[in-house]
Amino acid sequence: MSGVREGAPASWEVFLRSRRGLAHQHVGSVRAAGPDAALATARDLYLRRGEVLSLWVVRSDAVHTASPDERDPYFAGARHKPYRYPEQYAPLTEEGREGEHDE
């Protein structure tokens, strides 16, 4: 890891999920020597308010990212595939259905 002093605590990204059916949300970072210490520190810092169903910590250097500066292929639009965009479709309307149920 470049930029990190040898023997210094690693940086960990913290994710939590507050309710069933919701995705985990990134809530911040902590520094700790190992995963157990990272979980304990994250618990102390981020679980003070409300109930949380699960808590994840991931070493920051294990997170792979794409920068918005890297326009292709991650952030470029697919304008050559118009079927992916909602403006290509006409909205559904109730026209033509009025009076179908009239007696």
Rank of each mutant, 00 (worst) to 15 (best):
R19E: 14
G3S: 11
A10C: 05
S60K: 13
R17V: 10
M1Q: 08
A38D: 04
E70F: 04
S2I: 04
Y46Q: 05
S2L: 12
H64K: 06
L47I: 03
E51M: 08
F15H: 15
A78N: 02
P68C: 05
T93L: 11
P73M: 12
Y85M: 06
D61M: 01
R97P: 00
V63M: 10
H64N: 03
A8F: 13
G34R: 02
W56E: 13
A66M: 13
R5N: 08
R49A: 13
R79Q: 05
R20G: 02
P73Q: 08
V27T: 05
E94P: 00
F75I: 02
S67G: 05
Y83G: 11
G96S: 10
Y83H: 13
D44H: 09
H26T: 07
V30M: 01
S54G: 15
H64R: 11
G21P: 00
R59F: 00
R20K: 10
P9D: 10
D36M: 06
E95H: 12
A62T: 11
L16G: 00
D61Y: 01
R49D: 15
G99D: 15
G50L: 06
S67Y: 05
A42H: 01
A23E: 08
E6N: 03
G7V: 07
P91R: 04
A37W: 00
D102S: 14
S54N: 10
D36K: 01
T65W: 10
V58S: 12
